[in-house]
Design a protein around this nucleic acid. Structure first.
Lengths: 316, 316
DNA sequence: AAGCTTCATAGCAATGAGTTATGTTATGTC
DNA sequence: GACATAACATAACTCATTGCTATGAAGCTT
């Protein structure tokens, strides 16, 4: 004897509400509908579910037992609806985000932590890659969004790029670096110090070479390379080496008194940090929500940076 | 967003079976049916449930979450089916049985106990009444079956009466009663002893008067009346009074060495103990099962009584 | 690259669930 | 005891959904 779960749900509603009419309204149906359903059920299972000829409708033992199951079904249905609701509101799902390593570690991971505080049901799958690889992964559909520096004027067709921060770099050092005391700081003061080199495939590497050329440092010493941000930060803190990092990364680290930046104005590349997405990809609610959150956080960050700039850092 | 519980069940089946086809067969449906259902669901909730273009069908996170609810629904449905199954097999339900007090207490209650050992899910609602009241309750539908002594030749129309034991009475006494030692036992020996009288409305009361007349006891002393079988048994055990009881009741009590019967052959009324039911009443499975069980137990009892009779009791 | 398995789609019939309108039946009140 | 009322039952009809078979399309396997 196979029973339609909807019927069990109806039974439960009738028993709980104490009447056909109330049960029907509780289910959003009309009274005749549930009445007929009950009649059909009774005929089908060959047993009465409610005592006949009793006006405060009194359920049979069998009916009570079935109502217990019906309640379970009703509960499961409600939580299923809630699940779909939270999914559609973007509070549940998966977001696969990729980005350049230093930027992801230095800025985006904090934003992710903040996001997950509000939406713990959203799973974030993070991966590291540079622009070309990010694009191919977006194209293959194995990534939902990417955060990386790109030239806004040269975005390939089919992609959408939303700049969030200027792609400005700074020369980073530990917070006790001797050069921080030097006023004024001359470029020749910088020359003696060794450098940390970002990975050769990283855009930062190119940036560093460019910066060093720009400030006239021709023969520089590389004392470390190949580490991720955590290693770089440690080494910067505990020695007097220098490196080139995105300003936003140093800005975030400055808050925890882990890194500092030299007051040297260096040219910035023709790139902006931004969010790269595939244009015709279906945007799942969690992705949309996450993207908006990231954008909002970046706006805040940009604001903070601008205030800070006006106050202290770049006064010449 | 309201979801059809059957759809959730389908999702669960697909996820658990690892494929559309297997899920479909597990549900007893065809593959195109569930395929279309899934497509409709995906469109309705606006989210994919399975990754597109993957042949070992891989469910979405959302789908997994919904499948959990679907499993609950499936489980509830299965137990509901089982409930109906046990109901239809007569292993669940209510049986309302009524009968004459002494007979219910002395014989039927033991049978009920035995029945409930095998079918604990069947609730027995027992009540006490005499024939006329039993009939009216059967007629009103507040009783499912009655056990009482009746004349099988005079059953009102609309009722069905199935005799299960001859309506034989005996003179009952405690197991240490002096008369049990007397061989041969003469009727004049009985005269001095006092009697317990059944309720005046009871058929046993008439029987007792009849029996006493029959054996020539004209002026007898009533020492107790109005008690139920438990009281009667106690008083019989602890004093030398006598009473008239159905043979089957004394037979059952004899097993526990609580009562005995005098070896006096007395006439028996034109009544049989039997099961009285209303003819056109719908017979619920549990009632049918219980009735058959009672009949079978009574057959066994009749057999036992017959054997016992041939051996010892009524040898003259 | 071919073959096999599995999923998707189409067209059609039938069941079932929804609706409104209306009848029936308990229950409470005078 | 008759009437009013509220709740349940029934009727007639519409429409969404599911069932089926047949067939196309797409991955995975060898």
């Amino acid at each position: 004897m196979k029973l339609d779960p909807r019927h069990l749900e109806i039974i439960a509603a009738i028993v709980d509400q104490g009447g056909l009419t109330e049960g029907a309204t509780a289910l959003g149906r009309t009274q005749p509908s549930v009445s007929r359903t009950v009649a059909m059920l009774e005929q089908r299972i060959g047993a009465p579910l409610f005592e006949k000829g009793r006006r405060p409708l009194v359920p049979t033992e069998l009916c009570q037992a079935l109502a217990v199951e019906g309640r379970k079904i009703g509960g499961a249905g409600k939580t299923a609806s809630a699940i779909v609701g939270t999914y559609k509101a973007g509070h549940r799902g998966i977001v696969r985000i990729g980005g350049t390593p230093v930027f992801m570690d230095g800025v985006v991971s904090s934003i992710i932590a903040e996001f997950q505080r509000a939406s713990p049901q959203v799973r974030i799958e993070q991966s590291y890659a540079y622009a070309a690889e990010l694009m191919s992964q977006l194209d293959a559909g194995t990534l939902d969004l990417a955060v990386c520096p790109l030239n806004p004027a040269a975005i390939p067709a089919g992609f959408s790029f939303q700049p969030v921060l200027p792609g400005r770099n700074v020369i980073a050092c530990g917070i006790n670096h001797p050069l921080l005391m030097k006023r004024p700081l001359r470029l020749t003061d910088i020359a003696p110090y060794a450098w940390i080199a970002p990975p050769a495939s990283s855009p930062l590497y190119q940036d560093m070479r460019h910066v060093l050329g720009e400030i006239g440092v021709t023969d520089f010493k590389i004392s470390f390379s190949g580490g991720s941000l955590a290693s770089i930060t440690n080494i910067l803190s505990q020695s007097d080496v220098l490196t080139v990092l995105p300003y936003s990364v140093v800005f975030m680290a400055r808050r925890q008194k882990m890194l500092a930046a030299l007051s040297v104005r260096i040219g910035h590349p023709e790139r902006s940090l931004g969010i790269l997405t595939k244009r015709d990809m279906e945007v799942r609610p969690a992705i949309r929500r996450f993207k908006r959150f990231v954008e909002s956080e970046f706006r805040n960050l940009a604001q903070l940076i601008m205030q800070q700039e006006q106050n202290s850092l770049w006064r010449s």
